[in-house]
Every structure is written in C-alpha cells, then in structure tokens.
Amino acid sequence: MQVRFASRPLRRISLALALLGLFTAGLRGDPVAERYHRLAAKLRCVCPCHQSMLSECSNMQCSARAQLDAAMVKLSQKVRSGDSDELILQAFVQEFGPEVLAAPPTHGFSLVVWIMPWVAAGLGLWALLAVLHYWRAQRPSAEPATAPAAPAGDGDPALARVQAEIARELGDWERRE
C-alpha cells in the first residue's frame, strides 16, 4: 500500500522551491543557507504545539504543517531578498506575534523576564549572608569548654560522664576492627 501523507500541492511546491534552493546550494559555507539557519534558530515553530525551533520542527509532527511550511518559505525568501536580520525578525513578529521569537526580546516589558532571576539571586544571596551574619553574632563568643552553659570538665559530672563514654566508645571502635 502506498503510504498517504497529507498534501496540499500549492504549498508543497513553493516550499520545495525554497528549500531545494537551500539544500542544493550546499549547506556548508553558503552564506545564505547559514543565515537561514541562524535565523531559524531564533524563531520558534509557529504551529500550535510550540515545542521547538523553526529549524527543528520539520518532521511532520506538527498538526499545522501548512503554517509552518509557509513560515519556512517566507524566511528563505526574506533571506534571499537580503533584508537585515532585524527586519526579518520584525516581520515575523508582526505576522505571528511576539510568541514567534525563541527568546524574549531584551527590551521593553520582557526585559523583566531576563532580569528577575538575577534580582532573585541577589536578594537570596543577601538574605543568605544576613542569616550567616546573624548566626555568627549569636554564637557563644568564648571557647565552648569555658562557656557558661558548660562549666569546666572536671566540675561537671554530666560532661565527665559523656567524655568517659565517648572515649570508651571511640576507643572500642578502634580496637574492635
């Protein structure tokens, strides 16, 4: 049985023309193809699944192949016509909305998305250092053996007992094996 794959002639032909040009141009070293790939990596797949880059979402998983193919054709045409990267990306944003950009722009409101993690990191670090500082300030300043809570070893039966027990146990441990 011949396998059926959804096909819409018009779109396929245009896609073929566009992509074939790129493939046959040979991928390595061709500045046009390189630019195409570089730009494709900055754009997301425009199908509803939104799961990967334009350059990666080319294996028929998408439910909206038509849209995707059209976008790829458009990109290759724009690359050919020699528009600047900025202009091309802008055209895409105008057509598909800002969602099409793989990374949020670093200006305007979406700058916030880039800054916040570092702001949080800064605040967290500040809190961390504050806690450390606070704890150290609370630390009993004297050496523990002479700290008020624990009078010197021989005067305190509990401490003496603990020390004896520990000494026995650790000594045991050394001898046992």
Binding site: R44, P98, A102, A103, P104, F109, V113
Partner: peptide, 19 residues
C-alpha cells in the same frame, strides 16, 4: 512569564529554550 506578560501587556511572549 507568558501568562504574566499576557496580563500585563496583552500579548503572550514565549520564553523558550534559549532563555
């Protein structure tokens, strides 16, 4: 963030792998 940006700006910004 996409949800936040939709509230604030009315348009969804996608935050993907690159970010």
């Amino acid at each position: 963030f996409p949800v936040i940006s939709e509230w604030v700006e009315g348009q969804k910004i996608s935050v993907g792998r690159v970010f």
